[in-house]
């Protein structure tokens, strides 16, 4: 089976700090990968390289068999990589619906100069995406007025509107209260399953990881220290002491 995403000897250092240290990594279709690691372990830098935000000093990144190393983010997105962010990246002067509509317009490759945005996209699909993440009732609200959990969901909805093959989520539950975390992840995972999207999420909450991930990779100082099933990785003594602090 060919990996959906693959990195070979990926390396990036910021001065004397090695953020990504010769990482060889593969992600397969249908997996739900959780990436764990302490702050500064290089998780987000690795995501930034895979999504084109940073260029590696060495090594290659392949997505769906294509070399996407140092490609600009928009080109990688067009190939089928969606991304949501630790701090939701929304269009704060737009409504919830408009945020998803703009994403839908990209998917239809239809950015008219003249026709209204609504007339160039499939409104039913926009509604379906909003419904999938439970935001249909808030569709006409200004997205800046949403609480953090819903902002996170909108961030995911914007990525899902592009119909990606892979969705990379950077700390989808950060900033969300502990009572709301599971409901949020339940909604996100249901949406991903519905759209058959392979996912990779960075997470600090062990309960979330063990419940929703099919595979866990633990990052320590720019390296993948452990990679396997949640049971294997979360019970690994090194990971327990150096990452989980238990």
């Amino acid at each position: 089976m060919k990996p959906l995403l693959q990195t070979t000897d990926l390396y990036l250092a910021f001065g004397s700090v090695i953020a990504v240290d010769n990482i060889n990594f593969e992600l397969y279709e249908g997996e739900r990968l959780a990436v764990i690691g302490q702050n500064g372990a290089g998780k987000t830098t690795f995501i930034n390289i895979c999504t084109g935000y940073l260029a590696p000093s060495k090594g290659r990144v392949y997505f769906d068999g294509r070399d996407v190393t140092a490609m600009v983010p928009r080109k990688i997105v067009r190939l089928g990589v969606g991304r949501s962010f630790q701090l939701p990246q929304l269009f704060t002067e737009h409504t919830v619906r408009q945020c998803v509509q703009i994403a839908a317009a990209r998917r239809n490759k239809n950015l008219s100069w003249f026709r209204s945005l609504e007339s160039t996209i499939d409104e039913k699909e926009v509604d379906a995406t909003l419904d999938l993440v439970g935001l249909l009732t808030e569709a006409d609200e200004a997205c800046i007025e949403l609480p953090e959990g819903k902002r996170k969901l909108l961030d995911v909805a914007m990525a899902l509107a592009l119909r990606p093959k892979l969705l990379i989520m950077d700390e989808p539950t950060s900033g969300v209260s502990s009572e709301d975390k599971f409901a949020l992840m339940e909604t996100v995972m249901h949406a991903l399953a519905e759209r058959r999207v392979t996912s990779w999420f960075v997470e600090h909450d062990v309960d979330i990881v063990s419940r929703y991930a099919t595979r866990v990779a633990a990052w320590i100082a720019g390296k993948v220290a452990a990679d396997g099933t949640p049971d294997e990785v979360l019970n690994n003594p090194q990971i327990k002491s150096e990452v989980l602090g238990t």
Binding site: F91, E93, H94
Partner: peptide, 21 residues
Amino acid sequence: SGSGQALSAIKTNETRIEYLG
């Protein structure tokens, strides 16, 4: 229009515009 809405979206979040392709 789509172009106009995307232009005004640049004002609040250019990073996201790029990450929408």
